[in-house]
Amino acid sequence: MKRVYAKEELCLNCRLCEVYCKTAHSHSKDIVTAYKKEEPAPSARLRVSGDNHLSVAINCRHCENPKCVEACITGAMTKDKATGIVYVNESKCIGCMSCLAVCPFGCIQTGSFAVKCDLCRETGEPACVKNCPNRALVYTALGGEQE
């Protein structure tokens, strides 16, 4: 399946991926409104770790056999059979954060429910990749290095 791969040698630590992720997962889809007005405040599903010298955007690997899906006690965490995307059904999630405890990559954030990357499955094009100013994020089925 196509995944988002981060190239740390090109990552600027600008963290615009976080900004655009948060906006893409807001109601208004407007950056200023998403940050300043919306309640509950939307949150970014990936985070950039590091500093200006070495940084990388860490996001969900959408594992073949996801631990988070196994650990979910309500069946809210689902792996879409057709696309392979692992996503949270917000109406079922009770926020127990069992998924967070088992994720080997630390890709689940806390909130009123578990917050994680859904590869922007509604639009089909991850907002982080689309808006990365230095093509440090690539969306490919080939893997980061072969791209």
């Binding site: 600008c14 963290r15 900004v19």
Partner: peptide, 10 residues
């Protein structure tokens, strides 16, 4: 300004 800090880091 949404205080994202992009300017600070750039």
């Amino acid at each position: 300004c949404v205080q994202c800090g992009c300017c600070v880091r750039q």
